Amino acid sequence: MKTNKKLKKVIVTQSHFNHKEADLDILHFPIISFEQLDFDKNKLNRTFDWVVITSKNTVTFFKDYLDQINYKNIASIGKTTTKALVEAGFKVDFEPSTYTQEGFMQEFNVDKDMCILYPASNEKRPLMRNFMVKHDAEVVEIDLYHPIGNKLSLEGIRNNLYEIDAITFSSPSGVHVFMQHFDKQDLEGITVATIGHVTRSALEAYGVLSIMPEQATLNSMIEMLEKELNE
């Protein structure tokens, strides 16, 4: 996009970054890296009615196992996860209209004695598991990976923080890592944007307020920031 004006500078901290062209100067510093965990492979030796996939990271770490296990259906939590699954060669049988755990639970039908495989981060919220168990499903949980701070990105954020107009967060883990290295005061005068109510609540626990797009996607957040910063 050709322009003579000085673009507003935005730091995006989420791990995966693929957005449409924007009228912003975007710096990508993925604040979280992910490390795969060992788990008991014997848990996979059965037939599952559903495999519930809640993130692109799960696809990355679990796609090879998904090729080897017996399952009937795959449920995805939303658009980004579905895209990753399809690109990896898998068919998605369910995706909620609202890309959140709450939206998933409102629309996903759990039957009694259903066997559900649930691979995810070891720091996932218990919400989804409790929902499925409450409806008498047998849930096989896999602690598949865990988040760790990205040192290079944290250094990049520190070097640019006082020159930016906005910063974005897309997960509670990212918020917690940031706040381990920075203070609330470091965000004064900076527009803070979040994806999802849980991420926004994590920031609020540190006393930081944020704005949030209606749709929980990176493109929606970038569009919101374009309007917010360029008015």
Results as ranks from 00 to 15, higher is better:
179 M>K: 06
164 I>P: 00
164 I>H: 00
141 E>K: 07
152 L>G: 01
158 R>N: 03
117 L>Y: 03
131 F>S: 14
173 S>W: 11
170 S>Q: 14
152 L>H: 14
139 V>W: 06
179 M>Q: 09
165 D>N: 15
119 P>V: 06
139 V>Y: 10
112 K>P: 00
151 K>H: 08
176 H>I: 10
167 I>S: 10
112 K>H: 04
145 Y>C: 04
156 G>K: 08
173 S>H: 08
153 S>R: 06
112 K>S: 11
159 N>R: 08
141 E>Q: 08
167 I>Y: 13
129 R>P: 00
170 S>V: 15
114 M>E: 14
166 A>S: 09
111 D>K: 12
148 I>S: 08
119 P>M: 09
110 V>F: 03
173 S>Y: 11
131 F>G: 03
178 F>M: 13
142 I>W: 03
179 M>H: 07
153 S>H: 12
133 V>K: 13
150 N>G: 05
127 L>D: 15
148 I>G: 02
116 I>G: 04
160 N>E: 14
173 S>D: 12
168 T>C: 11
124 K>E: 15
175 V>I: 10
132 M>V: 12
159 N>E: 05
166 A>P: 05
143 D>C: 00
148 I>R: 05
149 G>I: 07
125 R>H: 04
165 D>E: 08
123 E>D: 13
152 L>V: 14
160 N>H: 12
112 K>E: 06
167 I>P: 10
173 S>Q: 09
179 M>D: 10
175 V>T: 13
147 P>L: 10
116 I>K: 03
176 H>M: 08
144 L>Y: 03
161 L>V: 01
175 V>A: 11
163 E>F: 01
173 S>L: 11
135 H>V: 02
118 Y>G: 01
175 V>M: 12
168 T>W: 03
172 P>F: 15
144 L>R: 00
120 A>K: 14
138 E>Y: 04
128 M>H: 07
125 R>N: 04
138 E>K: 11
144 L>D: 00
121 S>K: 04
147 P>C: 10
161 L>C: 00
113 D>T: 05
138 E>Q: 09
116 I>S: 06
178 F>W: 06
114 M>K: 11
138 E>N: 09
139 V>L: 05
116 I>T: 04
148 I>N: 07
147 P>N: 07
142 I>C: 07
137 A>I: 12
145 Y>M: 06
156 G>S: 10
166 A>K: 06
169 F>N: 08
126 P>R: 05
165 D>P: 03
177 V>G: 05
157 I>C: 07
152 L>Y: 10
157 I>L: 09
144 L>E: 02
128 M>D: 07
161 L>W: 00
133 V>W: 01
174 G>W: 08
163 E>P: 01
126 P>E: 12
153 S>V: 12
112 K>D: 08
121 S>I: 06
136 D>Q: 13
159 N>C: 01
128 M>E: 12
171 S>A: 15
120 A>Q: 15
161 L>P: 01
154 L>S: 05
135 H>W: 03
172 P>R: 13
177 V>R: 04
125 R>M: 12
138 E>G: 00
168 T>G: 03
131 F>T: 03
118 Y>E: 05
131 F>M: 06
118 Y>I: 04
167 I>K: 11
158 R>W: 00
179 M>C: 09
117 L>N: 05
171 S>M: 11
151 K>M: 08
165 D>S: 09
114 M>A: 08
156 G>W: 01
123 E>I: 15
161 L>F: 02
133 V>L: 12
